[in-house]
């Protein structure tokens, strides 16, 4: 039996509201809010990046796991905003946790699916018996081009998972993937902002891959949508995951706890892992959770977890997701936001 031994998250303290962005570009805020089911998004402080969010999330995960960092055999950080083009984020995280030097690492990149891929690898390295514990982390400080629809949603956050074979807070029931080569979204080397295929991002990309992964794992495990207590889909906005969930036969009480986008935005690699963390924050022993990521390019990873009794014992050792999301927020005006995100050209 393998699964999650500890989980932890970090969400920046800063926020910007949809109205504040729309005001600058002369856009209609109510239609963006309604169309995207999005009210505000998190913004990283200038001294936060994917590495710092990953470390702070992983430290929380380690407190819940209660393990010796020297027992970690692998660390995988998935992100599309690694601080360096060449030099791993995983080395920084491993060193900060005190896991070095007997630890495997390499950074992962697959748009918003890199975090869940890290979780998949971590779970299966443990299952193979090669390592005792492994970390899978999804972290991003993503950027949308000024004025682009993505600017309203691209946000920052991280979720970290310590995977192991004992003292589980959630047992892994099964996993399944669905992946094809689909050019719905990309960013070339040295480009500051991504480009996307507009309407192409919906039906042949998100919808096809998420539903493909869901159908495959339900068939493989012979579990029905109504058998799950909770479900989390990747959240590029607040609209896609809700539409998709309802279409596949899930109901609002199942996705309510994991749907964070309306006040968080899209944390890319952190998105469905953060939704899973928010769900673990409320799940009771024995309850079943379905999590499905989505990354442009394109693919989805589906996971089924079952909460254990230990979840109740470790939950309150570190801040819950809703607390990080709802409390002590600091709102930015667009000018401060532009400075924080280095959107202002300064003399060299």
């Amino acid at each position: 039996m393998v699964g999650i031994v500890g989980y932890g998250t970090q969400i920046p303290r800063y926020r910007i509201k949809v109205e504040e962005i729309a005001k600058v570009w002369g856009a209609d805020a109510p239609s963006y809010k309604k169309g995207l089911n999005l009210n505000e998004k998190s913004v990283p402080c200038p001294d936060e990046d994917t590495a710092t969010l990953a470390v702070n999330a992983a430290r929380n995960a380690m407190i819940r796991a209660g393990i010796n960092p020297k027992d970690i055999g692998a660390v995988y950080v998935g992100s599309e905003s690694h601080p360096y083009a060449v030099k791993p984020t995983g080395t920084i995280v491993s060193e900060a946790l005190g896991a070095c030097p007997y630890v495997h690492t390499a950074d992962l990149e697959f748009a918003c699916k890199a975090g869940s891929e890290g979780m998949f690898i971590a779970l299966h390295l443990v299952k193979s018996g090669i390592v005792k514990y492994a970390l899978g982390i999804g972290a991003d400080t993503s950027q949308g081009a000024p004025g682009d629809a993505l600017e309203y949603s691209a946000s920052a956050g991280a979720a970290a998972y310590v995977m192991g074979a004992d003292n589980l807070v959630a047992e892994l029931i099964d996993t399944h993937c669905f992946m094809t080569d689909t050019p719905d979204f990309w960013r070339r080397e040295h480009a500051n902002y991504p480009e996307h295929g507009g309407r192409f991002t919906g039906e042949p990309a998100y919808m096809k891959h998420v539903s493909g992964a869901v159908r495959a794992i339900l068939e493989k495990t012979n579990i029905r949508p109504e058998d799950f207590n909770y479900m989390i889909f990747h959240q590029p906005n607040g609209k896609f995951p809700v539409q998709m969930a309802l279409k596949l036969g899930f109901k609002e009480p199942q996705f309510r706890h994991g749907l964070l986008t309306p006040t968080l935005g899209n944390t890319y690699s952190g998105s469905s892992p953060l939704g899973l963390a928010a769900t673990l924050d409320v799940a009771k022993p024995g309850e079943q959770i379905l999590m499905v990521s989505y990354g442009s390019g394109a693919g989805s990873d589906a996971f089924i977890f079952k909460a254990t009794k230990r979840l109740d014992e470790v939950r309150n050792l570190v801040p819950l997701v809703r607390k990080q999301l709802d409390e002590h927020k600091i709102y930015l005006e667009y000018g401060q936001y532009a400075k924080f995100r280095h959107k202002i050209l300064k003399p060299e």
């Binding site: 969400i11 303290r13 402080c45 200038p46 001294d47 936060e48 990046d49 590495a51 710092t52 470390v55 702070n56 430290r59 601080p83 360096y84 920084i92 900060a96 801040p319 607390k323 990080q324 409390e327 002590h328």
Partner: peptide, 27 residues
């Protein structure tokens, strides 16, 4: 204490990380 970015050697140089302090408000 939280793990934060302290400074960087320009746009192409090394990024320096270390501890900084934040208000302990439970987030």
């Amino acid at each position: 204490a939280k793990f934060r970015r302290i400074n960087e050697d320009g746009k192409t140089g090394m990024i320096y990380y270390a501890y900084k302090f934040v208000p302990d408000v439970g987030i």
